Computed example of a mutant assay.
Amino acid sequence: MAIEVGDQAPDFELRDQHGTPVKLSGHRGKKIVLIFYPLAFSGVCGNELDAIRDELIADMPEDVKILTVSVDSTFAHRAWADQKGYTFSLLSDFWPHGQVARAYGVFDNEKGCAERGTFIIDGEGVVRRRVVNPISRARDIAEYRKALTDLP
């Protein structure tokens, strides 16, 4: 079942690249850009997360938090974050495999990983924007910047 605009975002708790638990509801009051991506160390994913690091975070308001999620382990996320200089949260949906991606309706059962799903969540935990791209098609980071500025 896919999460749609206007739905309450399903809460979750996953570990980031440092092994620290991160709970979605722990960020109430902030706008969340929740980004699901297929796999670390892959070309399109790397280009997207580089754009988040270089373009989106640079002029992002303080009340916005970036959370990225893939089925990779915390160890893979740590190695990738260290190599690429990612300072935002890379959350591991490793076990149970893809459980959070499934809750948001963006898990690809055939490939065993998440599709490129992005959910912009307001401070009350309501999904205000949902975009799901096929695994092979990169996101438009400028689109998310505009969507964030349109939120109250």
Score class of each variant (00 low, 15 high):
L49W: 03
A81R: 06
F12Y: 08
V22T: 11
L90K: 02
V71A: 03
W95F: 08
R137F: 01
K84P: 00
E55W: 02
A103D: 15
F12W: 09
K30D: 12
E55N: 11
V33S: 14
E143W: 06
V100C: 06
R102P: 15
M60A: 11
I57K: 12
H97L: 13
Q99K: 12
D93S: 02
Y86E: 00
E62Q: 02
I135Q: 08
D11G: 07
S73F: 05
S42Y: 04
D54G: 05
F107S: 04
R128C: 13
Y144H: 15
A58D: 10
T20Q: 10
I141N: 14
I52V: 14
L148D: 09
V126R: 03
E48L: 05
K84E: 07
L24N: 14
I35G: 08
W80A: 03
S25A: 12
R116S: 05
Q17E: 14
V44H: 06
I32D: 11
L14W: 01
G19F: 04
V126A: 01
P61A: 11
D122T: 13
T20I: 04
E13S: 15
E13G: 06
I141W: 10
A76F: 02
V106N: 00
I32F: 07
H77Q: 10
L49M: 13
I35L: 07
A147D: 13
L14T: 02
D82E: 04
L24E: 13
I57N: 06
L148V: 12
S89C: 07
D108L: 04
D108K: 00
R53S: 09
